[in-house]
C-alpha cells in the first residue's frame, strides 16, 4: 500500500506504485492497470449467480470497516510520526490512508453523479432519434449540454496559464460565452425555477391551511407567530406597545421563548428519532442485513 505516499508532503521516492510525470514507464503502468481493471469488470459479469451477493457484501463491508476501525482504533499521540509499537503503526497507517480513501470516495461519487446525466442524455437521445413527441425540445436539451460543456471547458482552459489574471480584466470570447451561459442563463433559470414554489405555497396555504383540529390550530398559531416575528417592523411596533407594561410581553421575547423552550426541544426530539433511524440504517447497510438493499 505504498501508493498511500501520494499524500506525503515532500516529493516521495519512486517505487512500484508510482512513476515520474509524463514518462513512458508511468503510462505503461497506467495502461496495464486499466486493462486489469476492465478485465476484472468483465470477469465479474461472468460471476456465478450465487457469488454475486457475497461479492457486493464484501465490498460494502470492507468500505464501512475502514471508517469503523478508524473510529475505534486508538490514536497515535500528537506529533508522533514514527511508530513505537504495532498499535501506533496501525494508527499512523490509518491516518495516512484516510485522505486516499477520501480521494477514492470523491472520485467514485463523481462517477456516480454522472449516472443522472447519462440517464438524461439517454432518454432525450432516444426521443430525438426516434422523433417521438417533443423531439425538438430533446434536441435543444442535448445541444444545450454540448454548448455549455464547450464554453465551460474552454473558459477553464483560458484560466490555466499565466494569462489567468488578464482574463479577469479583459474577458475573451470563451469567457464571455461562459459568463452568458452560466450567469446569464443557467443561474437565472435556477433562481426562477425555485422561486415558483412561492406561488404554490400561497395557493396551498390559502386552500388547505384550515383550523379543523387541535394539531392544525397549534401548527397555524406557531407559524403565525414565527412569520410575524420575522417581520421586523411589526415586532418593533408590538414591542413598543408592550414595553410600558412588561418587557416579558414583548413579541420578540415571546417568539424567542417559543423558539428556545418549545420549538428547539420538539425539533431536537424529531432529529433524535431520525438520527437513531439513520444509525440503524447505517448498520444494516454496512452489514448488508437488508435483502432488498444494495446486496440484492
Amino acid at each position: 500500500m505504498n501508493f498511500l505516499i501520494a499524500q506525503a508532503p515532500a516529493t516521495p521516492p519512486l517505487n512500484f506504485w508510482n512513476g515520474d510525470n509524463a514518462t513512458a514507464g508511468l503510462w505503461i503502468k497506467i495502461i496495464i492497470g486499466l486493462v486489469l481493471g476492465f478485465a476484472l469488470m468483465i470477469g465479474l459479469l461472468f460471476a456465478p449467480t450465487r457469488m454475486r451477493r457475497p461479492i457486493v457484501v464484501t465490498f460494502t463491508f470492507l468500505a464501512g470497516l475502514f471508517w469503523m476501525v478508524q473510529w475505534l482504533w486508538p490514536r497515535a499521540g500528537e506529533g508522533v510520526t514514527e511508530p513505537t509499537n504495532a498499535t501506533e503503526g496501525v494508527a499512523l497507517w490509518l491516518k495516512d490512508a484516510l485522505p486516499v480513501v477520501t480521494d477514492f470516495a470523491n472520485i467514485l461519487t463523481a462517477f456516480l453523479l454522472g449516472l443522472g446525466i447519462y440517464s438524461l442524455v439517454s432518454i432525450h437521445g432516444k426521443r430525438l432519434i426516434k422523433k417521438q413527441t417533443d423531439w425538438v425540445f430533446s434536441g435543444i436539451l442535448l445541444l444545450s449540454i454540448v454548448i455549455m460543456m464547450i464554453f465551460g471547458y474552454a473558459d477553464w482552459l483560458t484560466r490555466l496559464g499565466e494569462g489567468a489574471a488578464k482574463v479577469e480584466l479583459v474577458p475573451g470570447f470563451w469567457n464571455r460565452g461562459r459568463d452568458l451561459l452560466f450567469d446569464g442563463m443557467l443561474q437565472q433559470m435556477d433562481a426562477a425555477m425555485f422561486s415558483l414554489i412561492a406561488f404554490f405555497i400561497l395557493s396551498a396555504a390559502y386552500r388547505a391551511f384550515r383550523i379543523r383540529s387541535i394539531e392544525s390550530t397549534i401548527l397555524l398559531s406557531t407559524a403565525l407567530i414565527v412569520m410575524i416575528s420575522i417581520m421586523g417592523a411589526i415586532v418593533f411596533m408590538l414591542d413598543s406597545a408592550a414595553a410600558p407594561v412588561s418587557n416579558n410581553l414583548k413579541l420578540s421575547e415571546i417568539a424567542g421563548w417559543i423558539t428556545g423552550s418549545l420549538q428547539t426541544p420538539a425539533i431536537r426530539a424529531i432529529n433524535f428519532g431520525v438520527g437513531v433511524g439513520a444509525l440503524a440504517m447505517g448498520i444494516r447497510l454496512w452489514l448488508s442485513l437488508d435483502r432488498g438493499g444494495v446486496s440484492g
Binding site: 468500505a63 464501512g64 471508517w67
Partner: peptide, 8 residues
C-alpha cells in the same frame, strides 16, 4: 459502505 461506516 463508506457512509454507513461513519454513522456511529
Amino acid at each position: 459502505g463508506l457512509w454507513a461506516g461513519q454513522q456511529a
